[in-house]
């Protein structure tokens, strides 16, 4: 997997590169909009992390150009302005995801990973992890043969976590997908729901499946 990072701020570019490299990506960095212009056609990338404010061509016009020339490489936009309008503008221009600055590095990595997996997501109606199963049609959850009662919100939360099993789910990603919030409400809503979900699916069972990654979010995995 090869990722292109287009970011003019040197320090930011450097830790994004390190983080993505430690996730197993090969990373190329580019500090300038004009340089980045022809990069995706020269090298096939699996994803592009693109800052909006760049010297030379800005991020939005770059995405538009790439999409016009039929390049469909998934793009994650980064922006320091971070307003709803800009998010919509970015997605309209052809970007696939949007992350306002300042962001959690773990979340950036999680989003890039999600982008590179787009389309290959588990589409099976029954999601499984260890002895936990969730039927997305009947909305029934079972663990070790025991049925678990879930509210609608808990079901959606578990579904999202299971679909991204093994990958980090940042709080803001959970808020987006499960609550349809496009803002960080600054409450511990997600944490409280996770706690309840944990009581239902993890408390009486072994091994624990729902893990906290402090300062970043949650992940479901067997160990």
């Amino acid at each position: 997997m090869r990722v292109l990072v287009v970011e003019d701020e040197k320090k930011t570019a450097s830790f994004i590169r390190k983080a993505l490299q430690s996730e197993g990506f090969a990373v190329d960095v580019c500090h300038n909009g004009d340089e980045a212009m022809s990069a995706p056609s020269a090298t096939p990338y699996d994803a592009i992390v693109l800052d909006i404010m760049l010297p030379g061509r800005d991020g939005l016009s770059l995405v538009r150009q790439w999409r016009q020339s039929r390049n469909a490489t998934p793009v994650l936009l980064l922006s320091a302005r971070g307003s709803v309008g800009e998010r919509i503008e970015g997605l309209d221009a052809g970007a696939d995801d949007y992350l306002p600055k300042p962001f959690a590095l773990a979340e950036l990595a999680a989003r890039v990973r999600a982008l590179t997996r787009r389309g290959s997501d588990n589409k099976s109606p029954v999601l499984r992890l260890a002895d936990l199963s969730l039927d997305t049609v009947t909305r029934q959850a079972h663990r070790a043969g025991r049925e678990i009662e879930l509210t609608t919100r808990e079901f959606r939360l578990l579904e999202f976590l299971l679909r991204s099993a093994g990958r980090l789910c940042a709080r803001t990603m959970i808020l987006e997908k499960v609550w349809d919030y496009d803002f960080d409400p600054g409450t511990n809503l997600v944490d409280v729901y996770i706690k309840r979900l944990r009581e239902k699916i993890d408390a009486d069972f072994h091994p624990k499946l729902l893990h906290t990654v402090r300062g970043a979010g949650y992940v479901m995995r067997e160990t």
Binding site: K11, T12, F15, A19, A80, P102, F103, L105
Partner: peptide
């Protein structure tokens, strides 16, 4: 707006450290 870049750098570097 200006606070966002240093904040991004700080939290990114802290996470890298972790």
């Amino acid at each position: 707006h200006e606070l966002k870049t240093p904040l991004t750098v700080l939290s990114g570097e802290t996470e890298t450290e972790l």
